[in-house]
Amino acid sequence: MIRYPQLEAGASIAITAPSSGVRQELHGLIHQAQARLEAKGYQVVVGKTVWTQHNAKSAPADVRAAELNAMLRDEWISLIFPPWGGELLIELVDLIDYGAIRPKWILGYSDTSVLLLAVTLMTGLATAHGANLIDNRGEFADETTGMWENVLATRAGESVRQQSSPKYQLAWDPDNPSPCVFHLTEPTYWRTVGGGSAKMSGRLLGGCIDVIRHLIGTAYGDVARFRQTHLNGEPIIWYLENCELSTADMRRSLVQMKLAGWFDHCAGLLFGRSGAERSTDGYTAEDMYRELAEELGVPVVYDVDCGHVPPQLTFVNGARADIEVNEGKAVMTQIFVE
C-alpha cells in the first residue's frame, strides 16, 4: 500500500538543507524562491541549515537530521522543499525517525533523491523527484517544471498526465539570467533502444544513480521487501539519472543494482539526459543501454526529462505509471493507487 500526501492551496512549505546549504553570496536565490511561493499563497518556513555551508554540507549530520525530523513530524507542514542537492545526504539515512513521519511531500532531485528513495522504501509514503526549490525562483516556470504543483495536488485514486518537454537546456548561463530561469533551446527527443516506440507500465522508483546506489545492501535500500510489503508484487519502472559518472562507472553501478535484485520484476528503465556520459575506451552510453535492454528483456528509454539537464518531469516514487514513447515524444500518466 502506498500513501499519497496532497498539496492544498495555501499549504505550508518548509525549506531545509539535508545535504548542501547555501553560501551567503547566494542567499538572494532563497529569498527569490520564497517570494515566488508566498506570492502563490503558500506559507513558507525556512530552516537554519539553509543559510550555512561548510565542508561539503550545510551542517553536521546530527544538526541536519534534527531539523529534518522536526519538519517530518510537523503535521502543519505539507511539503519539504530542499534548496538543492549536494554531496552527503547519505549521512542522514540512519538518523531519520521513519516511524514518526507525518504524511507530507518531499520534493527535489540530485542528492535529495537518497532521502526520497529511502523514505518511500522504508515507509510506503510517496515522494516526488523533480525540480529543486532554486529552480522555481523565476518570474514564471516552463510548462514542464511548473507541473510539480499539479502533480503534488493530485488526490489519492486520481491520475495526472505529463508530456515530454518541447525543448531542453544545453548549458547553464548564469551571466544571462532570464525570467524563466532555464534557457530552453534544444529540441527534446526521448530515444529508445532499437529506435522504435516503447510502452511500459509499473510502479515508479528511482533517482540520481550516483547516490542512490549507496543504499544497496543497507536496510534503507531493501527493494524486495518494499515490493512485497507495499506493491503486492507489481513490477517496477526505474527512472535513473547520471550526474557525474563515466560510462564504465555507470555500467558498474547498474550491474550492482541487477545483482542486488533491484531490477527483479522490472517493467522498463528510463534514463535522464546527462552531460556526464564520457565514453570509456570506446564504450558509449548507447552501448550500455543496449546491453541492459538485452540482459533484462525490457524497454530502455534514454534522454528522458529527468535530472541535471533541465527541465524535468515530476516522478512520484510508488505511483503507478503508464508511459508511451513514440517518435521522440512521450506521455506519462501517473495513477495514485494504493
Results as ranks from 00 to 15, higher is better:
Leu89Arg: 01
Val151Cys: 07
Gly157His: 02
Arg3Ile: 12
Lys57Asp: 08
Val193Leu: 05
Val337Asn: 15
Phe263Ile: 13
Phe336Pro: 00
Leu152Asn: 11
Ile101Cys: 06
Gly318Thr: 14
Gly21Cys: 03
Pro18Ala: 03
Arg203Gln: 07
Arg227Asn: 09
Leu37Gly: 09
Thr333Met: 11
Ser253Pro: 01
Thr229Leu: 12
Thr314Met: 05
Lys199Asp: 10
Cys266Gln: 01
Arg23Tyr: 03
Arg155Asp: 13
Thr49His: 03
Cys180Met: 15
Pro60Thr: 06
Tyr220Thr: 02
Leu125Gln: 13
Gly41Trp: 09
Ala260Lys: 04
Thr16Ile: 09
Asp281Met: 12
Glu295Val: 00
Arg213His: 01
Thr49Asn: 09
Ile101Glu: 07
Ser253Glu: 06
Thr188Leu: 14
Arg191Tyr: 08
Leu270Tyr: 05
Asp222Asn: 11
Ser178Thr: 13
Ala56Leu: 14
Asp249Trp: 05
Thr145Tyr: 02
His129Pro: 10
Gly157Asn: 08
Asn55Gly: 02
Leu292Trp: 12
Phe140Lys: 08
Ser20Thr: 05
Glu143Cys: 05
Gly196Thr: 07
Leu117Ser: 08
Leu116Phe: 01
Pro310Ala: 06
Cys208Arg: 07
Pro179Asn: 07
Val114Trp: 14
Thr120Asp: 01
Val151Gly: 10
Ala70Gln: 06
Arg155Phe: 04
Ala61Phe: 09
Val298Arg: 02
Arg252Val: 06
Glu295Trp: 12
Asp74His: 01
Gly206Cys: 03
Leu92His: 14
Lys57Asn: 06
Ala276Thr: 02
Arg64Asp: 14
Ile96Phe: 11
Gly194Val: 12
Asp74Val: 01
Asp94Leu: 06
His54Gln: 14
Pro179Asp: 11
Ser113His: 01
Val93His: 10
Glu286Pro: 07
Ser201Ala: 08
Arg102Gln: 12
Arg320Ile: 11
His214Cys: 11
Pro18Trp: 12
Ser201Met: 06
Glu241Met: 05
Asn176Met: 02
Arg320Glu: 11
Val298Pro: 13
Leu68Thr: 15
Val46Thr: 06
Leu245Phe: 11
Gln228Met: 00
Ala39His: 10
Asn150Thr: 15
Glu338Arg: 13
Ile236Asp: 03
Ala156Tyr: 03
Asn136Ala: 01
Asp264Trp: 10
Arg225Cys: 05
Leu240Asn: 11
Asn69Ile: 15
Leu170Lys: 14
Asp281Val: 14
Val46Ser: 14
Gln6Ile: 11
Gly85Met: 04
Ala70Val: 12
Met71Asp: 03
Leu95Ser: 12
Leu117Gly: 08
Ile212His: 00
Phe81Gly: 07
Phe226Asp: 08
Gly307Asn: 02
Ser78His: 06
Arg64Gly: 06
Pro299Ile: 10
Ile212Tyr: 00
Ala260Asn: 09
Tyr168Ser: 00
Leu68Asp: 00
Arg137Trp: 09
Thr229Asn: 09
Gln256Arg: 10
Thr144His: 10
Arg64Gln: 08
Trp76Thr: 04
Trp238Gly: 08
Pro83Asp: 12
Thr52Arg: 09
Ser164Tyr: 15
Ala128Arg: 00
Glu67Lys: 10
Asp62Val: 11
His27Lys: 03
Gly282Gln: 13
Arg320Pro: 04
Tyr220Phe: 13
Leu254Cys: 13
Gly261Pro: 05
Ala198Tyr: 03
Leu184Phe: 07
Arg3Tyr: 09
Met288Cys: 15
Glu295Lys: 13
Asn326Lys: 14
Ile101Trp: 01
Val309Phe: 08
Glu139Gly: 13
Ala248Arg: 07
